[in-house]
């Protein structure tokens, strides 16, 4: 064997369970377990970190870990069918093998949020990176203030993690869930709000004092969410987001994912809005 294990060599893992998140089937959650338990022990992930999923013969792609470290096994990845690797993943069945390496990237600064109210604003598949930190904060609810989750998607069928959105999170004490959809086809039952996430956020208008806003979703939604958060007097340090760029090695020396002198795979993907403002607008 080579002198020591190289960072770019993945570890073998098996897909234990696959659940479809959206009825259209373009988002699936994969429950994955390492083949070797000692390799799982080395894989200590914090909320917000990502892992490199390899489909052997096709390639690799960086996917955020959507399960919280407080509920360790199995690791969950919610993946939207976008490119070569993700479409091949969507054709895979339970029991097939993939490669995993990581965890990479920095994590949400959960320690700095002690005693603060948390506002999670998600759009479409953007809820996947947030879900790991939401469940983490729920499991350590005593350290944090109120948690409000504002989440929207194109249509009721496209909502991800329906089971948690409707039955699990709303019944917890100190947690509010606000859902909205862009449009509702007739014949679909939908009693909650209809409209885009940024406008819906301004309706709810959470108070900015002693609170942190965490947002993730399609770039166009993030742009307007940041504007409305500024209107509601949220400071730049109070707004946190994750950037998903093209990452090739995940360990900071393939020169692929830099915005200015920051490497998204090492200095990110979690950035505060203050950091994003300082960066050149090239993402």
């Amino acid at each position: 064997m080579c002198s020591s294990h190289n960072q770019l060599v993945p570890k073998v893992a098996t897909i234990k369970k696959i659940t479809e998140e959206t009825s259209s089937g373009d988002v699936k959650t994969f429950y994955v377990e390492f083949d070797k338990p000692e390799e799982r022990a080395e894989f200590k992930n914090m909320p917000g970190q990502c892992a490199m999923i390899s489909v052997l013969g096709v390639g690799e792609s960086m996917i955020s870990i959507t399960s919280s470290p407080t509920r360790p096994d199995p690791l969950e990845f919610s993946i939207k069918k976008m490119g070569k690797v993700t479409s091949k993943l969507h054709d895979m069945s339970v029991g097939s093998k993939i490669g995993i390496r990581g965890p990479y990237g920095n994590n949400f600064p959960v320690d700095e949020w002690r005693g603060k109210d948390l506002v999670f604003i998600g759009g479409g598949i953007g809820l996947a990176p947030l879900r790991s930190v939401i469940n983490y904060c729920i499991d350590k609810k005593e350290n944090y203030g109120s948690i409000s989750i504002i989440y929207g998607s194109r249509s009721p069928a496209d909502l991800c993690f329906k089971e948690e959105l409707f039955d699990n999170w709303p019944n917890l004490e100190g947690v509010e869930v606000h859902l909205t959809v862009d449009k509702v086809e007739e014949g679909e039952r939908w009693d909650k709000s209809v409209g885009f996430v940024p406008q819906y956020l301004e309706q709810i208008s959470p108070s900015p004092n002693n609170s942190i806003a965490i947002t993730c979703g399609p770039p166009i939604m993030i742009k307007y969410v940041l504007e409305s958060l500024e209107k509601m007097k949220f400071e730049d340090e109070q707004i946190i987001t994750t950037l998903e760029l093209k990452m090739q090695c995940g360990v900071g020396y393939c020169g692929r994912c830099n915005i200015g002198d920051k490497y998204v795979c090492i200095d990110g993907p979690v950035f505060s809005y203050k950091q994003i403002k300082e960066m050149p607008q090239e993402f």
């Binding site: 770019l8 060599v9 073998v12 489909v55 052997l56 013969g57 895979m92 097939s96 093998k97 993939i98």
Partner: peptide, 14 residues
Amino acid sequence: MKYKDASSDLKIEA
């Protein structure tokens, strides 16, 4: 690395 039978029982060799 080299890999053997990609999706059934995968073996990876440095």
